[in-house]
Simulated scan of single mutants.
Amino acid sequence: MNIELRGIAAPEGWPAPGCRCASCNRLRAAGVRYEPASVVIDGVPLEACPRTDVPGGFEVRAPHGQRALVAAGPGARPEPSAGAEYDAVLLDLAGSPEHLGHLRRTGAATSRTEVVAIHVDHRISSPAELERRMAFWNRPRHGPHRTLLLGGARSGKSAEAELRLAACPDVLYAATGPVSDDDPEWRERVAAHRLRRPAWWRTVETTDLVDVLESETGAVLVDGIGTWLTAAIDEAAAWDDPALAQPSLDDLVTAWRGTRARVVAVSDEVGLSLVPATPSGRAFRDMLGRLNQRLAAESEETALVVAGRVTELG
């Protein structure tokens, strides 16, 4: 199936007329404009192909019989026909990348399905950002592949981790934080994280990351390494003697190196903060900093997240 895109944008185009947002202003300043979505399949305009409406969009037949599922507009999530397996899906990936994960989960989109972003607009910061996201949304669901995301508190590192795996059909979310049912603020934080995640993601609350890394082969999100380290130090009673926790750190690095999973892990970047006032705080900072270095050395990708912006570290 040959898909020609003559326009990829939402109905108003990108930049949108009169819009003063940063995304639209960047394109306007560069003299760039993307026209509303216009698609030609095997030489035939999309609107001229045989069409069947489905909730959230429609499916079309290409001249040679191939099938494509198309989102009706921004925010639309087209549902596949029963038993359908599409040769291409044209989706609002700027707004709903997790819908691609849903289609892959149901078998409507497979490894052979061409994935195309349409209805693109200022919900995404730039064409380069769309290209960056498409690269990991089209990545194979299985590993081995390791990504370490570093950042400070409220930097957006967890949201970036979820975004990177949004198009996967199945994700195991390994939450290493403590269960604090008596802490309303903590419960609110946990609930906010869950609402961001697709409903079909599996969640396990565990500090046994070695078992997770050794047993899983699909997509895994670990959030996060800092809380895992706290538990490891507690378990080894190592706050006064950090060396007691070292075997656990060594085991984690070994499991990270040997995993078959496609894993994205979140960790705190401690090198830019104030020097902790207590010996135990300084010990934790030093241990996490060294652990981050070791995991980064065994990762295909490492990135720093600051104010929701991502810098790849190589």
Results as ranks from 00 to 15, higher is better:
P247L: 10
G218T: 02
R104D: 04
I233M: 15
L130I: 07
L249E: 03
V40R: 02
S299P: 03
H119T: 14
R309T: 14
V210G: 00
P74G: 12
A29H: 12
I3K: 01
G308H: 10
M287V: 13
E298P: 11
N138I: 06
A76K: 05
V40T: 08
G258N: 15
T110F: 13
P17S: 06
F136D: 04
N138F: 01
T311G: 14
V212K: 01
E59R: 13
S215C: 01
V89S: 04
D286L: 07
D92M: 11
A303Q: 12
S267G: 09
C19M: 05
E269Q: 12
P80W: 09
L150S: 05
G218F: 04
L91C: 07
R112L: 15
S273V: 12
V220M: 06
V32S: 02
P80Q: 10
T176C: 11
D42V: 00
W239P: 07
T302S: 15
A192V: 01
P80T: 08
W186T: 08
A62H: 02
N2K: 12
Y173F: 14
T106L: 14
E79I: 10
T302G: 08
D208A: 03
A159P: 00
R257Y: 06
L274V: 12
Q246T: 14
V115R: 09
H119A: 15
E185D: 15
L213V: 03
P198T: 01
G308F: 09
L295V: 13
S180W: 11
I3V: 15
E160L: 09
S248W: 04
L46C: 05
L150N: 03
A245C: 07
R67Q: 13
E114N: 12
L221S: 02
P50S: 08
L163Q: 14
A231L: 11
V171E: 09
Y34N: 00
R112N: 15
A161P: 00
L313R: 13
D42Y: 01
A167L: 10
R33T: 10
R133C: 14
D241M: 03
E300G: 07
A30M: 07
L288A: 04
A82M: 13
G75Q: 07
L27R: 07
G101R: 10
C21M: 04
A159K: 10
R294T: 05
A307E: 10
D223F: 01
E129V: 14
D234E: 14
C24N: 02
G95P: 00
V70I: 15
H119Y: 13
R141E: 15
E301R: 14
P50C: 06
G101L: 08
G107H: 13
R20N: 04
P15Q: 03
A16C: 13
P11K: 11
A199I: 05
L249A: 08
A108D: 15
R196G: 00
P198D: 00
G18V: 05
A277I: 08
G218W: 03
G224C: 15
V40S: 02
G152W: 07
D181N: 05
L221F: 06
R194E: 10
A265D: 01
Q293K: 08
N138K: 14
F284Y: 15
L5T: 03
